[in-house]
Design a protein around this nucleic acid. Structure first.
Lengths: 195, 195
DNA sequence: CGGTCTCTTGACGGAGTTCAAAGCTAGTGG
DNA sequence: CCACTAGCTTTGAACTCCGTCAAGAGACCG
């Protein structure tokens, strides 16, 4: 069960992790299942957990001044999901997190996080890297949004995350790319006719 | 001279900092002056310093596949500037950082950073918060980019940073907002005639 | 004083939005 | 097991915002 987690931590840290460390982390987390369309975090409330997806999928979004949702991140098996800012700062979150399918998750709360960091410095380092990577991904995404058109962004997204295309509804991918579902539909049609 | 730095650290940490801590930090940094149009960091090279602006201004940008520059961040007196990802990960940076005016800076390199963290844990915490805040600002900016038109974004920017409007060339603000200088010029004209 | 850099203005074009309607699909309850 | 409904996707037509190309005006610097 922890095999997926081990793989993920090792990939992020860039080195192998002992079973000791792995189980120390595992002991700080607990397992939970969710139905689809369940809210794991809500805008305006402190985000108390970091989620590691064992099975299923979820996504985070924020709601703008006009009440419209904007998808920010997707997570399938082997991905982490949280409102990291809220989790670490303990302030009210800006994201809502919702399951797309029935899910099995590993949950880590602040207490567990602190315990895990005390036990082994690798974990502290791991979460630091998690934020750094999220930060980098965001920089990259903003740059792409400002320099490339929707078709190029969709093409890159579909090549980078072919499994997302399979399992995530198109209108959410459109939202993630910053366009309307109608536009994405037209872009896809256009791309097929090009080939 | 360290008064500006003290104010900044206290504001970020949310509590007052002893002169002891402040001087410990100050001793890990060194002062340097730069002319205008000097590169403080370059894309593709490791960003070795975190800069704290005592006087002057600078900005960071990245260059897209078409060779076009995109302004990412501005810094006046009392602001920090760096390619934080590159600085902390020691990997090659994606940003170029350039002075806009003659500058006086405090520089912190990795060695100094580690020393400062050893001396007092507040510093470690402070830089963690710096990344978190940068991350949050970026999330906010991406959300605005995807939900509001250029006029609304400019209006908010000018209200949030009236001093930036004074001192930063308009074509760089346009770039920051993700539009062309011509468009910003038209938007400004439109806004004047509305009033 | 001339050259470069920045800002403005005009005309046109194109990418994406809006509004509206119809087709498709999957889940629900009878 | 089928029918119905609700949510997702597709399509069309008109419109809007912003980009592109081009030219000129103003500011700054050597």
């Amino acid at each position: 069960m922890l095999a997926v987690l081990k793989e993920n931590i090792e990939k992020t840290l860039g080195r192998s992790v002992s079973d000791e460390v792995l189980h120390a982390v595992g002991d700080c987390m607990f397992r939970k299942t969710f139905d689809k369309k369940v809210l794991l975090a809500e805008e305006g409330q402190s985000c108390r957990y970091v989620y590691f997806v064992l099975e299923g999928s979820c996504y985070s979004y924020l709601i703008d001044a006009k009440g419209e949702k904007h998808a920010m991140q997707f997570a399938l098996e082997g991905y982490w999901m949280s409102d990291l800012y809220s989790f670490f700062s303990n302030r009210k979150g800006i994201y809502t997190i919702e399951t797309l399918e029935p899910c099995q998750m590993l949950l880590l709360n602040r207490q567990g996080f602190n315990r895990a960091c005390d036990i082994c410095p690798e974990i502290d380092r791991f979460f630091r890297l998690l934020i750094q990577n999220a930060f980098l991904a965001l920089q990259y995404r903003l740059a792409k949004t400002n320099s490339e058109d929707a078709e190029a962004r969709y093409l890159e997204f579909s090549q980078l995350h072919p499994n997302f295309i399979q399992r995530i509804p198109q209108y959410l991918i459109a939202s993630y790319l910053g366009i309307k579902p109608q536009s994405l539909s037209r872009i896809r049609k256009e791309m097929v006719s090009k080939k």
